[in-house]
Amino acid sequence: MDSGDLTGWSIKNNIKEKYHFEAKLASGGFGIVYLASDRKTGEKFAVKAIQQQRVKDYKSFVTEVKILKNLDHPNIIKLYEIWEWKEVCFLVLEYCEGGELFQHIIDNKCLSEEITAYVMKQLFSALEYLHSKKISHRDIKPENFMLHKKNDLSCVKMIDFGLSKDFSASQTMVTMIGSPYYIAPEVILMKYNKNIDIWSMGVVLYIMISGKVPFPGRSENEIIKNVMKSDFHFNYDAFKTCSAECKDLIQ
C-alpha cells in the first residue's frame, strides 16, 4: 500500500533502533499495542503497530492520525511520533498505565458526585478544546478515556479518534456512527452537529454516578428505540444523594 499520504508526517526508518519493545499491551483488528521504552532515556510509551494492508479505509486512517498529531491538551492522549517501516505504521503515543475509565467505574460500581465532578471537568475541558479545533469526536464513552496512572483520577485522557470528524467545512454531519448506548437521537436521524458529543458526555456522567446506562436494552434496536424516546429516570439509589445541579446537568 502506498504510504505517501503520511509523507512529511512520518519517520521512514526502523523504529526499533530508537525504541525497545518490552511487552504487548493489547491487540485487535487494528493491530497491536506495545509497551516500549526510549533506548536512550528509558521513557515509556505506548506504540500502536498497524499493518497498512489491514486498514480498510486508509484515507480515513491518515485523517485520524493527522488530527491527533495536531492536538495538544493535557486531557487528550498525545501522539509524539509516526513511523513507517515495511508497510507497518507505528504510532508512538503517551503511555497511560491506569486503564480505561470504564473499567474504573466497574471496579468501583459507581463514583461519588464529588469525584465525578472532578473527572467531568477534565473531560469537558478536552471536549471544549477539541471543538475549538473544529473536531467532533463522535464516539464519546467511558472506554475512550484513560487514566494516566492506576486508580488516579487526577489526569484522565481522551483517546481513540477513529470516528472523529473535522467539521470546519460543514457544521452538519450525516453519517450514522458511534456506540448505541451513547449516541444522540440526531445521529440516528443522520443530521447532527458537534453537540452530539455533549449528549454523549451526559450519558457518561449518568453512568459515573449510577453505574447504570440511562437507555438500556436487550438488543441494539431496543437501545436505539429507547434513545429516540429520550426517556430516562433517576430512580437508582445513587441518585438519592445526588444534587439537583447534577441531575440538571444530566438533563
Results as ranks from 00 to 15, higher is better:
Leu68Ile: 11
Asn70His: 07
Asn70Val: 01
Pro74Leu: 12
Asn75Phe: 15
Asn75Ile: 07
Ile76Gln: 06
Ile76Ala: 06
Ile77Phe: 09
Leu79Asn: 13
Tyr80Ala: 07
Glu81Asn: 11
Trp83Glu: 04
Trp83Asn: 03
Glu84Gln: 12
Trp85Gln: 10
Trp85Gly: 00
Lys86Glu: 12
Glu87Met: 10
Val88Ser: 02
Val88Ala: 03
Val88Pro: 01
Cys89Gln: 02
Cys89Asp: 00
Cys89Met: 09
Phe90Val: 09
Phe90Glu: 07
Glu94Trp: 03
Tyr95Ser: 08
Tyr95Phe: 15
Cys96Arg: 10
Cys96Ala: 15
Gly99Glu: 07
Glu100Tyr: 06
Glu100Phe: 05
Glu100Met: 06
Leu101Asn: 09
Leu101Arg: 08
Leu101Val: 06
Gln103Thr: 10
His104Trp: 14
His104Pro: 01
His104Cys: 03
His104Asn: 13
His104Arg: 07
Ile105Phe: 02
Ile106Pro: 04
Asn108Ala: 02
Asn108Glu: 02
Asn108Thr: 01
Lys109Cys: 01
Cys110Arg: 03
Leu111Glu: 00
Leu111Ile: 00
Ser112Gly: 09
Ser112Arg: 00
Glu113Met: 00
Glu113Ala: 01
Glu113Tyr: 01
Ile115Leu: 15
Ile115Met: 11
Thr116Tyr: 02
Thr116Ala: 12
Ala117Phe: 02
Tyr118Ser: 15
Val119Glu: 05
Gln122Gly: 12
Gln122Pro: 09
Leu123Cys: 12
Leu123Asp: 04
Phe124Asp: 01
Ser125Pro: 02
Ser125Leu: 06
Ala126Gly: 14
Ala126Ser: 14
Leu127Trp: 08
Leu127Gly: 03
Glu128Met: 02
Glu128Asp: 14
Tyr129Gly: 13
Ser132Lys: 15
Lys133Ser: 05
Ile135Gly: 01
Ile135Arg: 02
Ser136Asp: 03
His137Phe: 06
Arg138Ser: 08
Arg138Pro: 00
Ile140Val: 14
Ile140His: 08
Lys141Glu: 05
Glu143Lys: 10
Asn144Trp: 01
Phe145Asn: 11
Met146Thr: 04
Met146Ser: 12
Leu147Lys: 13
His148Ser: 15
Lys149Gln: 15
Lys149Leu: 14
Leu153Arg: 12
Ser154Asn: 15
Lys157Gln: 08
Lys157Glu: 03
Lys157Thr: 09
Met158Gln: 04
Ile159Thr: 02
Ile159Asn: 00
Ile159Val: 09
Asp160Ile: 04
Phe161Trp: 05
Gly162Pro: 02
Gly162Lys: 04
Leu163Phe: 13
Ser164Trp: 05
Ser164Phe: 05
Lys165Gln: 14
Lys165Met: 12
Asp166Cys: 05
Asp166Pro: 05
Ser168Thr: 13
Ser168His: 09
